[in-house]
Design a protein around this nucleic acid. Structure first.
Length: 421
DNA sequence: TCTGGGGTCCTAGGACCC
DNA sequence: TCTGGGGTCCTAGGACCC
């Protein structure tokens, strides 16, 4: 059996740890640049505030219902998430961290210790609440695909107190019969529309479809999903995360940019971030892609989107090299006269960082460049981001995201630590 | 005034190979 | 009248996740 633990309205709950006054109030957390709603408390959901809704659309609701608005603050959320995962790991050794606020616990082999999984679920819930201060929902299921079903019922039905078990075949079938397709993992709006058009509204109806039809319209992934819903296959819990296949840094500018110099500085900053992530997973990249984008929502302004990739002469994880090629691409695709919202960089084509591919001219990355980058990583880890930086990163304020409603970084900054009276 | 960021996988189609 | 067969690799685009 598998246990899914997921935090209720994670970002909101994380804020409430340090702001108990937010308890019981409608609270929303905004995306970077304060653009969209990315988390809503139960009370905010009741006000029909939608996930992903643009902030500027909120309007009167905020005043009328005194909705608390908070800018996203990923550093403390990551910190809180780490605490949560470490506690779960104390209960069960084999866990898969699925996202910042969800984990699968593989309880195979623990049957004799935890004979009653529902009671165990309540124990987890109580411990997390006490030790970290987060409310979680718990689904107990034989297959991962069913986890979201169980967790949905755990949240939806108050009489289960946040823990729901799906084990017996007839109970599973009953649960699927009342479960809307859109809520199924891997069914998004597009697929939901298609299914609806064909009279398929529930997860149970989906299990009754023909394999050929499913694969034709929803690819082999869709077929895998339906097969697991039917109870035929089981995806194993992945204890160790696979290394990333691509690494991307492409935040929006706080204010639009149209001159090449500022873009270059912004791109430099993003490449530095990418390089850090790349070295952290011990990879080297063979391909650098850069892209530019105007604001697609501004129909009144001329639009420009372009992207181009360049292959490196050898795999590299040294920031100076990555910078050199990225800037080359930017210069090639830049066109003046557009208000750009984003310059992004993506690294891909990864090999292990110590991999040496034989080439015609034995052209390899200068090891000293990597060493410099690693030393900068160490110093920045100790003294703070960008303490050691490239002059080419500049100091422009354009790519600083807007965040008007920032809360303090209670757990990661001494200067912002919580005060007790 | 104003609409996130960072990933995954799959498929179709084109280029190219012998 | 009439233009091979079989394979690989790459890219763009579309779907999905939180």
């Amino acid at each position: 059996m598998i246990i899914l633990v997921d935090v209720d309205s994670f970002y909101v709950s994380a804020e409430r740890i340090f702001r108990p006054d937010l308890e019981g109030k409608p609270v929303v957390v905004l995306s970077a640049n304060d653009g969209n709603i990315i988390a809503r408390s139960k009370e905010a959901k009741k006000l029909k505030i939608r996930m992903g809704q643009p902030t500027f659309e909120l309007g009167g609701v905020v005043k009328q219902h005194k909705v608390e608005i908070i800018s996203t603050n990923f550093t403390p959320y990551g910190d809180v998430s780490g605490r949560l995962m470490r506690i779960l790991n104390q209960f069960i050794e084999k866990i898969e961290i699925y996202s910042i606020d969800e984990a699968f616990l593989d309880v195979t082999g623990y049957e004799r210790i935890y004979t009653d999984l529902v009671a165990f679920g309540h124990q987890i819930r109580k411990t997390i609440k006490q030790w970290v201060g987060l409310p979680v929902s718990i689904g107990i299921v034989p297959k991962e695909t069913l986890a979201k079903v169980a967790s949905w019922y755990a949240k939806k039905q108050p009489n289960y107190n946040g823990v729901f078990e799906l084990r017996e075949a007839d109970r599973i079938q009953q649960a699927l019969a009342d479960f809307p397709c859109l809520e199924v993992w891997d069914i998004g709006h597009q697929y939901n529309q298609l299914l609806k058009k064909n009279g398929i509204e529930t997860a149970y109806a989906l299990t009754q479809c023909h394999d050929v039809w499913i694969q034709k319209h929803m690819t082999i992934e869709g077929l895998r999903l339906v097969d697991e819903l039917r109870g035929n296959t089981r995806r194993p819990v992945q204890q160790y995360p696979a290394p990333k296949k691509s690494i991307l840094t492409s935040p929006c500018f706080g204010t639009p940019v149209d001159d090449l110099k500022t873009l270059q500085e912004g791109l430099n900053t993003h490449v530095v971030r990418c390089g850090e992530k790349l070295r952290r997973q011990q990879s080297a990249a063979c391909l650098v892609t850069v892209y530019l984008q105007t604001n697609p929502f501004r129909a009144d302004q001329p639009q420009y989107f372009n992207s181009q990739a360049t292959a490196l002469p050898h795999p590299s994880s040294a920031t100076p090299e990555l910078l050199q090629y990225a800037i080359g691409v930017l210069n090639a695709i830049y066109k003046p006269g557009y208000k750009l919202k984003r310059v992004g960089v993506m690294l891909s084509g990864f090999v292990p960082h110590d991999y040496q591919k034989p080439t015609l001219f034995n052209d390899v990355s200068d090891p000293r460049l990597r060493a410099v980058s690693q030393t900068a990583d160490k110093l920045n880890a100790k003294y703070g981001r960008d303490k050691i930086r490239f002059a080419s990163q500049g100091y422009s304020v354009h790519w600083k995201p807007r965040s008007k409603f920032l809360s303090r970084r209670y757990t990661t900054r001494w200067s912002e630590i919580l005060r007790a009276q």
